[in-house]
């Protein structure tokens, strides 16, 4: 039997093979540079972790890493309650009117705002207000403010993904809106929500601009106490004379691994979420295309 992917004509064949070639070439470049990072950074990274507990040299990767993660999760925890509340309200309670449209547009627009804007906010508003001793708090608040609109729109779209029939049936059984939201919608949307939130955190955690800006509020200080992995990488690459040092490769690899793990966890959650909600395809034994 003829292979279902074979093109029917000669030109078709050329077009197909060039599409396939270019796609894999692009993916190949991605894989190549990550591979290069692993190749150059794996050794230093292992050394850092092995010697880390005892050495007193400039080995600061491990505490940096912990700080990065805890700041990230701290910011998300600060933002999450507000974001879920607002997302649920906008999706389930707010009436369809112009005000709602405006709120959605504002939240969506702010979620896609360049991080430098939030950095400017942290630098110009929060830093002078709280003063020098509270950099951690300032950074936490800045990342919470940045995460907030993203998490609201994530919640909103997660709830909108749930089929209308779930709401209808739950309301028809006499459930209140509140019961419907928490009993019928959230179990369905929760995984999607968690996944998207993790994905957003992967992006926020790797972003440099807000930290650079907050650190810039005290130029002499160079932000030692709020240094995170991406900021550390930026700072040491820019300031050292040698770009391609093992230390940099180790830092970059650790950063990539962290982001990739977060994103991978997000993907996994989403995939199992898909199979739970049940796909709407005509036949689930096979996948279309």
């Amino acid at each position: 039997m003829r292979d279902r992917h074979s093109p029917q004509t000669y030109t078709g064949g050329i077009i197909y093979s060039s599409i396939i070639l270019i796609s894999w070439l692009a993916a190949g470049i991605l894989i190549f540079y990550v591979g290069y990072l692993v190749f150059r950074g794996f050794g230093p990274l292992v050394r850092f972790f092995r010697d880390g507990a005892f050495a007193e040299t400039d080995n600061i990767l491990l505490p940096l890493w912990f700080r990065t993660l805890s700041l990230l999760f701290g910011g998300a925890l600060l933002a999450l309650p507000l974001a879920i509340g607002a997302g649920v309200y906008l999706s389930e309670y707010a009436r369809e009117n112009r005000l709602k449209q405006w709120m959605l547009a504002a939240v969506g627009g702010l979620a896609e705002m360049p991080p430098i804007v939030y950095g400017l906010f942290g630098w110009g508003a929060l830093a002078p207000y709280f003063g020098e001793g509270k950099q951690t708090l300032i950074f936490l608040l800045t990342s919470a403010v940045w995460l907030l609109p993203q998490l609201v729109s994530v919640t909103y779209s997660a709830l909108k993904e749930v089929p209308v029939s779930f709401r209808r049936d739950s309301l028809a059984l006499g459930g209140s809106r509140w019961q419907t939201t928490w009993g019928a919608l959230m179990p369905c949307a929760g995984r999607f929500l968690a996944a998207e939130a993790l994905g957003g955190m992967a992006r926020v955690g790797g972003e440099t601009a807000p930290v650079i800006m907050i650190a810039a509020a005290w130029p002499s200080f160079h932000g030692q106490s709020l240094s995170t992995l991406p900021y550390h990488l930026y700072r040491s690459v820019v300031e050292s004379g040698e770009v391609a040092s093992p230390h940099h490769f180790g830092t970059a690899l650790l950063l990539v691994l962290t982001s990739v793990c977060l994103q991978g966890a997000a993907l996994r959650l989403k995939r199992t979420g898909d199979s739970l909600a049940g796909s709407v395809h005509e036949r689930e034994r096979g996948r279309w295309y």
């Binding site: 790797g206 991406p230 970059a252």
Partner: peptide, 22 residues
């Protein structure tokens, strides 16, 4: 392919800047 690009879309830009400089 999908998993590769989806996962690698999370690579921070500072890393890409670093690789670029190298």
């Amino acid at each position: 392919f999908w998993t590769t690009i989806k996962v690698l879309s999370a690579v921070p830009s500072v890393v890409i800047g670093f690789i670029g400089l190298v």
